[in-house]
């Protein structure tokens, strides 16, 4: 999902790999564009977060102070929002378009729901100013489900299942069947995001991973290869199941011989 100043979203995750499809583009888009990035950790040591960024292909040292990773200081909503406001103004004063903020919200489990609601409400004012945009990280392993669903209403990115919203391709998580729904066209412009979303889905799910292809109007060889590579890398009897595959894509997969790829199941439009 490509975000702009003023937006305030959340990501719920149960494994760090699930952060990548959301945070990696958020941070790299900022560094490739005209933004500063602030990454505030809570339970994760900043050095570990820096390692995660490296693993996602982001060079944490290569941007001359435009990317800062630091540990949360005082878990007080007023103090945190004041610090964020100050950092956003400083970014603007330094000539940047906006501040991209992302932070671990696990402190709220210790501080309580009131504190969390206060933070989320006050921080919204910072984003509304247009000086900043943010993604709040919620670890499913520590937050009660009911808190998570309440939080989703506070975030403008209420569609937390939307993993990528590009010009030609949208990728959405699906719960039933577990996996992804794809919508649009897949070529070089979406293939990296597809690869990321697939590997996150493989980690997230324990059984078969389903991909709904019913709204895919075009997929090229590089896109098909990502699907096949994901399928053949699966172990333990798991499969990548492609559902509602358009007829001409079924034909393509057959031509290439990938209909026999281990771990791949191709179901046509009637599936």
């Amino acid at each position: 999902m490509r975000m702009g100043p003023g937006e305030h979203r959340s990501v719920a995750f149960s494994d760090e790999a699930e952060l990548e499809p959301v945070l990696a583009p958020f941070i790299s888009d900022g560094l490739a564009g005209r933004d500063k990035v602030l990454y505030v950790t809570d339970v994760t040591h900043p050095a570990v977060a820096v390692g995660l960024l490296r693993g996602w292909g982001i060079d944490p040292d290569g941007h001359g102070g435009r990317l800062e990773v630091r540990e949360l200081g005082t878990p007080d909503p007023d103090v945190m929002v004041a610090e964020l406001t100050e950092a956003a103004h400083r970014a603007r004063a330094e000539g940047y378009r906006a501040l991209r903020f992302t932070g671990e919200m696990s402190w709220a489990v210790r501080e309580g729901t009131d504190s969390l609601t206060a933070f989320e409400t006050k921080v919204q004012a910072v984003f509304d100013s247009g000086l900043a945009m943010g993604i709040c990280q919620y670890d499913r392993r520590v937050f009660p489900p009911v808190t998570l669903s309440e939080l989703q209403r506070l975030h403008s990115g209420a569609d937390v299942d939307l993993e990528f919203d590009g010009a030609l391709l949208r990728i959405r998580r699906s719960a039933r069947p577990p996996g992804l729904e794809l919508d649009g066209e897949i070529d070089a412009n979406g293939v990296d995001e597809l690869a990321r979303a697939l590997s996150a889905a493989v980690l997230r799910e324990s059984g078969d991973v389903h991909v709904d292809m019913g709204r895919i109007s075009f997929i090229d060889l590089s896109g098909l290869r990502v699907l096949v590579d994901t399928a053949t890398a699966l172990t333990g009897g798991r499969s990548l199941v492609l559902n509602h595959v358009p007829e001409h894509v079924v034909q393509l997969i057959g031509l290439i011989g990938w209909d026999r790829a281990p771990g791949l199941r191709v179901r046509g439009g009637d599936a």
Binding site: D187, F218, D220, L221, P246, H248, Q251, L252
Partner: peptide, 9 residues
């Protein structure tokens, strides 16, 4: 659709 794929590739 197939011709479009061929042309794209």
């Amino acid at each position: 659709s197939m011709l479009a794929v061929a042309a794209h590739e």
